[in-house]
């Protein structure tokens, strides 16, 4: 399949094209990204723009490279030994795959929320204050403010305000996940990457996290990997469909779910495979 038809051309929103043309609102511009885990060719010629203040959903069957792509966006994938990449990913016009790009700076601007809630085995307060602290913010009063603001931002302040000194593992799974989101918000990132953030949660907690995502998108660009088609349809503005390490289709969410261009996309979203 040629790359042109696989991504941009199917994208129909005139407004977004304008943005893409000016380059203003693009957060991430991925060009010809390839990635190998040793011999496994996990990402193939990915071309994908990601825009500010939108929720971009990444969908696709298991093993198609969704997590890999997400982890490439904050170079977390480097933690796996033997990973090689080619191509460019421009974040705010700077190539993050360039070795001279400081990965800590990137990850300060690009927060990540994982599939399984992974709070630190510390107090709720210390969890939230972790990011600011490692970036040199020590003032107790400032930290107090940041913690409150972040917990409010994640809409969990009222639930935990009286137990900030308790271990984060004393919370429910859904609360833990929102703590993880709050932890992310504490360093005021620009982008938030979320890898199936609700798949380990019960329906009620899932709903809470989804509501939270909707509210967050005013201030953050969010990229979310999900297996849940309804979720993608509900909360995202753009959707990219991955298959075997390739982007098969990328479009406005409404557009992609109502009139998929590619047969394989249609098969997937109608549940015929994957």
């Amino acid at each position: 399949m040629d790359k042109e038809s696989s991504s941009l051309n199917q994208y129909s929103s005139a407004n977004a094209f304008k943005n893409a043309d000016t380059g203003n609102n693009i957060v991430y511009d991925t060009q010809d990204l390839n990635l190998w885990y040793g011999q496994t060719h996990a990402l193939k010629n990915i071309i994908l723009p990601i825009y500010e203040q939108e929720v971009t959903a990444i969908i696709g069957p298991s093993g198609c490279g969704k997590s890999t792509y997400l982890k490439t966006l904050n170079r977390m994938v480097e933690l796996v030994p033997g990973v090689r990449t080619s191509g460019t990913i421009k974040y705010r016009n700077k190539d993050i795959l360039d070795k001279s790009f400081k990965v800590e700076e990137l990850r300060t601007k690009v927060g990540m929320v994982f599939q399984k809630p992974n709070p630190f085995p510390k107090s709720i307060y210390d969890n939230i204050a972790y990011g600011p602290r490692i970036h040199g913010i020590r003032n107790k009063k400032v930290l107090d403010q940041i913690v409150e603001k972040s917990l409010r931002g994640a809409y969990i302040w009222d639930e935990v305000k009286d137990r900030l000194k308790e271990n984060a593992y004393s919370l429910s799974g859904g609360q833990q996940q929102r703590i993880c989101i709050a932890r992310c918000l504490a360093i005021e990132p620009d982008v938030i990457l979320m890898d199936e953030p609700t798949s380990a949660l019960d329906p009620k907690s899932t709903l809470k996290v989804e509501e939270l995502i909707e509210k967050l998108k005013k201030d953050y660009s969010i990229i979310i990997v999900t297996h849940n088609m309804q979720q993608a349809a509900r909360i995202s503005d753009k959707t990219a469909f991955f298959l075997n390490g390739e982007v098969i289709e990328y479009a406005d969410t409404n557009f992609l779910f109502s009139t998929p261009k590619d047969k394989r996309t249609e098969d997937y979203i109608t549940g015929r495979f994957g």
């Binding site: 300060t108 600011p132 970036h135 040199g136 913010i137 400032v142 403010q145 940041i146 603001k149 409010r152 931002g153 809409y155 504490a186 360093i187 005021e188 509210k215 967050l216 005013k218 201030d219």
Partner: peptide
């Protein structure tokens, strides 16, 4: 409730940048 990004006095991003 809502994000009080602009109303708050502190701006974490700037502080991090300074550090």
């Amino acid at each position: 409730m809502g994000l009080k990004n602009n109303k708050e006095k502190i701006n974490v991003r700037d502080m991090i940048e300074k550090n």
